[in-house]
Design a protein around this nucleic acid. Structure first.
Lengths: 144, 144
DNA sequence: CTTGCTCCTCTAGTCGCTAGAGGAGCTAGG
DNA sequence: CCTAGCTCCTCTAGCGACTAGAGGAGCAAG
């Protein structure tokens, strides 16, 4: 049995790119694995699982710091999962706010491109709305 | 008549922060204004309008490069507005994709927090779904 | 004339990577 | 045994769009 994997294998398995794996090690998100005689990283099955966890969480838009906490929680199964729950809830709220903000934006952009008569810039609705905030229904949106 | 404004006044008027205005000058988005004897930037009404345009476009999520193009277009009112239209349309598509992706994400997160029984980490749905991609309905989403 | 605000420039940091240089190991074929 | 070509190593620098802070100078009011 080999039992170990190169960084390339880990990358293929997890879908996380090789430099990104090294980066995760650097910032302490993934433990530094043992090395072969030649100095190459030798990952175990546990590491692959951790990487998959990280990748999945990143796909769902969790920030590195949140993932750090979630990983710590995962390592202590007897703890209350209130913290994990809170992180997920928090993120859900963030996502919902972002959707709301983007939806308002979509309306604004749709109004812009619909109003554009495809003539000259002087009478272009797109430019007009951008130039004059008063023309627009979008006010005080959060970050898109 | 003064006719000119300090960077602080420009910031208050436009809602763009002082260092950000200087940054816009540095990257060539806003022309470098004349200076007073004491070396301070003296903006004119035209600059304030340009800043407002930039701010509004940023709020709508346009990238700096797109704004650069839009500003050039604004400066030549006789040109066809096809380019401005294309930029806005492009951005609308981006926003729509982002909304779709975030909506899928919201479902996933909602499932996570609803499934969580608020017990121990060992049986936490949040951690579980993160650990096992197979458990999840989210596949191949674009960047959130 | 001093206090305190704003302004100036400059450098470095943020986040989450990504790209590239320059070199070493490892494996297969000739 | 040698070489070709792959992967791996470390290191530094770059991305976008700012943000933060140091250290200093101008400027207006009391």
């Amino acid at each position: 049995m080999t039992g170990t994997f190169t960084i390339g294998e880990a990358a293929r398995d997890s879908g996380v790119k090789v430099p990104t794996i090294r980066y995760y090690e650097e910032i302490g998100l993934l433990p530094a694995p043992p090395r072969t005689e030649g100095g190459r990283r030798a990952y175990g099955a546990q590491d692959l699982r951790r990487l998959a966890f990280i990748r999945h969480a990143r796909e769902l838009g969790f920030e590195i710091d949140a993932i750090r906490t979630l990983l710590q929680l995962q390592d202590e199964p007897d703890q209350s999962c209130a913290a994990a729950d809170a992180i997920a809830r928090d993120h859900l709220i963030t996502v919902e706010r972002r959707i709301a903000s983007l939806t308002a934006l979509r309306e604004e952009l749709a109004r812009m491109v619909e109003g554009c008569s495809h003539g000259h810039v002087a009478s272009c609705r797109v430019i007009e709305i951008l130039a004059d905030h008063g023309e627009c229904t979008h006010h005080e949106g959060g970050r898109a």
